[in-house]
């Protein structure tokens, strides 16, 4: 197998120039998916018989929660690649993934609270999933805090990669523990939508939105990485040429 593409990924310049061609395509596909998903989900999907229109927030909530969790693994895998192959670019991806993931986790929590108010009658419930998401947010914030604490970028990269990997081992354990804790403490009065089977007419726009969020995530990540490249390579000739042009 030809591994040339993998080694090329390590070059900031190659990465920047290659993604320059992809970015507009990625953005247009993402915007199309999001537009279709939003109009379909908010405008045309049928109303829920019990929750009325308030359930429609899942078209933001579920994709955000999806990507928040997937984003942690993107960050951890990028960190692991950085440790194993000493690849500078992979650390850049890891650094970029942390704030994006934190914002998505926060978005999932806020939309959950907004949905909880009309449905459960309260902004906050110590539900298993909500609590897990809150802890995920703490994990992200810990990584961001650790990143900012070091003087040297190189050390900060390694430290964050180690912490992200430790977190990866822990996330399933945390998730299962919180799940168990919830069943121990709470009577099963609250049923989430996800538990009951969702009607296809509601599920299709949700799938479109999830695909759209994946696109949005990739675009944001690449955008962030590209900005990081320009900043860290600002002294090189090719960056100067791009900026002047």
């Amino acid at each position: 197998m030809n591994w040339q593409w993998f080694h090329r990924l390590g070059s900031p310049r190659w990465f920047y120039e290659k993604t320059s061609r992809w970015m507009p395509w990625l953005l247009s596909v993402t915007l199309l998916l999001l537009a279709v998903g939003v109009v379909w989900g908010l405008g045309y999907a049928p109303m829920d018989s019990k929750q009325g229109n308030s359930y429609r927030i899942i078209y933001i909530h579920v994709p955000a929660a999806f990507l928040a969790l997937a984003g942690y693994y993107v960050m951890a895998i990028a960190g692991a690649v950085g440790i194993i192959w000493q690849m500078k670019m992979s650390y850049t991806v890891m650094r970029a993934a942390a704030p994006i993931g934190a914002v998505l986790t926060f978005l999932a929590l806020v939309t959950g609270a907004l949905w909880g108010k009309p449905t459960w009658g309260t902004w906050w419930v110590w539900d298993a999933r909500i609590t897990s998401m809150l802890i995920l947010l703490f994990l992200y914030l810990g990584i961001i805090a650790l990143q900012g604490a070091y003087q040297q970028q190189r050390t900060a990269n390694k430290a964050c990669a180690i912490l992200a990997l430790v977190g990866t081992v822990n996330i399933p354990i945390i998730y299962k523990s919180v799940d168990w804790w919830f069943t121990l403490h709470q009577p099963a009065t609250l049923k989430l939508v996800g538990e009951s089977s969702i009607d296809p007419s509601m599920a299709y726009p949700l799938l479109v939105m999830i695909a759209g969020f994946y696109g949005l995530y990739s675009w944001l990540l690449m955008h962030w990485v590209r900005a990081d490249i320009l900043q860290s390579e600002s002294k090189t000739q090719w960056v100067k040429e791009i900026v002047v042009k």
Binding site: F138, G142, A145, L146, V166, I173, I174, K176, V178
Partner: peptide, 20 residues
């Protein structure tokens, strides 16, 4: 303080099962 921030989320499972 940073040490507490990064480690506390990882302590959650131990706390749950210990107190339980």
């Amino acid at each position: 303080l940073l040490l507490s921030l990064i480690i506390m989320p990882l302590y959650v499972p131990v706390l749950i099962f210990g107190a339980s």
